[in-house]
Design a protein around this nucleic acid. Sequence first.
RNA 1: GUCGCAGUAGCCCAGUUGGAUAGAGCAACGGUCUUCUAAACCGUAGGUCGAGAGUUCGAGUCUCUCCUGCGACACCA
Length: 565
Amino acid sequence: MTDYKQQVADTIKQAIGDGVLDDAVIFDKIERPKNSKMGDFAFPAFVLSKVFKKAPQAIAEELVGKINGDGYEKVVATGPYVNFFLSKPEYSKNVLETVLAEKGNYGQNQDGQNGNVPIDMSSPNIAKPISMGHLRSTVIGNSVANILAKNGYHPIKDNHLGDWGTQFGKLITAYLKWGNEEDVKRDPINYLVKYYVRFHKEDVDHPELDDEAREWFSKLEHGDEQAINLWKWFRSVSLEAFNQIYAKLGVSFDTYNGEAFYNDKMPEVIELLKQKHLLKESQGAQIVDLSKYDLNPALILKSDGASLYITRDIATAIYRDREYHPAMNLYVVGSEQTYYFKQLKAVLEEMGVPSAKNLHHIPFGLITVNGKKLSTRSGRIILLDEVLNDSIALAKKQIEEKNPNLPDKDKVAQEVGVGAIIFGDLKNDKMDSINFVLEEQLRFEGETGPYVQYSRVRAESILRKVPDFDPETSSRDLDDPEAWEIVKLLNDFPTIVKTACAEFEPSVIAKYSLRLAKAFNKYYAHTRILDDVAQRDARLSLVKSVSIVLKESLRLLGVKSPDEM
RNA sequence: GUCGCAGUAGCCCAGUUGGAUAGAGCAACGGUCUUCUAAACCGUAGGUCGAGAGUUCGAGUCUCUCCUGCGACACCA
């Protein structure tokens, strides 16, 4: 595959002459004009005006005079810019050739050299419902994993469950007092939450409940059989409920190493910190001083000797280091924890944990309701499952209206409804906070997941009309000016894949898929693809290529692509 | 108070890392289905890019000051 930007840079370099500008400088200056009528690539001549002491307009003219237009459609000076128009038939052929040959593999690179990348994501708490708040971590983590794999890494999706802690003492106490097995079996999360809430209500007037809860947690920690069995049961019924939602979202995990998993690995952390003489006492608690990182001290042990979140995270990082020798160590956690992750990284560096320098917090903005943070206590909670079901129901309704003869309606409704929610989350910069309004989530028109899905459905529909079309052997001699924008976008895909990976930013893919879908819909509206016999196969090659790249883009986002909808 | 993130059309957001006339979507108004799926396409209208200064040939983009919103600031996770 020809690197056209490099080709343009070489042409410019020859025209300028040796030793005037660095090769890299020239390459960096080459840009894509905002308006494609200006050209396919442009070189702004401003940088040269100082060197040659001439107006950039004049320099642009001179450069064009020195360029012989071989390999280009034309090269023109427009004001201070040298604008390059690529040779469309050759370029198109080249691009389509590559996409059709590589299919879903198009854009794959090996930059990651198969390095392991554990990703901390989703992380719901046992016995609590999965809310919209968990959606972001789940869906961003899943997409980042797909993007990493596309760049040659080996992602390891780790659902760091909140499955340990004093709340289990409370839960056991509450269950034994007011619970019943049938209810929990029927609707685990709902009833477990009820017990938990009731505990907190009653505990106001009956402080002795707290003692009981403490005792049960202590029993749990010391391996009491009844306590352990109840804990295991709560955990497994919760996980079953979670997995139904994950299945709906199309997200799976490689490990569920939650807090309980690391519980027995804490003493070693403390021991290591002591060996390195990093622990200091302060106000009765054990801290690590981080003043040389310009950070507040990290509190490792409470004054009562109990461990904290960071202790567990240190244990996690050390475990991952030994287990995976990770190329990167990722945490998809809300942006409100940015400072905390700086501290964690600093402590790990002090401890000399090798992967510390490759620890990346992937932050994202809050989901709010009326501008306020979600919280179970204040009742501002939106259940993810309900939102997904609403969206699926709406998709079903649309299918009944628009395409009542569609086979597999329920499956498609799920793919479209869930796709809308996932795409809606991933479309914008992950740092943007999202003010949740249900009606805005349930939109299938304009810049949405269903729009991209629908675009590919149209492409597939055309391809079905010509069963004898063979993308392997068909003509790729596309000489179709209307298709030009699409071809250029197709050529961008491998670069987009790399950018999304470097920035841990799924929205780069989502925005790209919108651009491609939009360009295709425009083409579709203006060109009768099947009518012109002479151009038919080349056009179908383009349609097939669009379908391939749209499907792959959606896959990277974790969104399904139905063939019909 | 200190630190971090953000402020672009009525609403929600892009803006190719400093380049050409600031762009989409939603909402509004008007047009396009006997012809490859109208979940689409085309058009109209909508802007002091939070405010001010600075750097430069050139600033939505970089620097500084201020304003506004959100978040974080050791014994929660």
